[in-house]
Amino acid sequence: MNKQEALFSYTLRLADNGLILSQRLAEWTGHGPFLEEDLALTNIALDILGQSKSLLEYAAQVEGKGRSEDDLAFLRGEREFYNTQLVEQPNGDYAKTIARQYFVDVFDFHFYTALANSKDETLAGIAAKSIKEITYHVRHSGSWMLRFGGGTEESKQRLQDAVNDLWRYTGEQFEMNEVDALLIKEGIAVDMTAVKAAWDKQVINILNEAGITTPLVAVMQTGSRQGKHTEHLGYILAEMQYLPRVIPGAKW
């Protein structure tokens, strides 16, 4: 693997996280628990989709094989997606959507803060831009973690169930492989060790504050770095890619 291939793979992984999460969040459009939350999730989905679009454009440019960002989004199969299994998990109830979002928001905040110092100017630029948006996202999901935890018996139990369900998918976010190793040497990629320490601290603090028990999980789910996913991703892609695959080159 050379530097260009590693940079393509790294950028694509980040883009896929945003693309799949925004698609999931968009499923809430018109179904939010009340109007303001419906708007909030749509806004957050839009920010994340925008970040993903910038990353996909850059990935396409780095690859240099004439694929566009739309080709990358709509014409890849399940095993060619490298998003974490966490972001593809179903929305569930609102507590589950919020817990998933909070886990990702805290990761994104620390990860992109570090990536803003990347020697790759484009990644650093996208990161610096994204942090401003993520700051609002983490504030939103964090405040809901506390409201569910401090709300009723039912809201607290639902959040506890969501955290229990999702916890096994959180470890994958910090995995590093040969792509990371090569790019860390170049000063481009982020060393996940520090990101994990910051994530653990912040997430466990809020779980404690919300009165939620941190699950003990012996084995974390893994596989997305090799394109292995839970059964949910195929259904997301089927819906997301339907139109461009049935009507290639469709414009509106």
Partner: peptide
């Protein structure tokens, strides 16, 4: 709400 009718606005 921190999120409004467009990305740049809060309510």
């Amino acid at each position: 709400s921190q999120f409004g009718s467009t990305a740049c606005k809060a309510l």
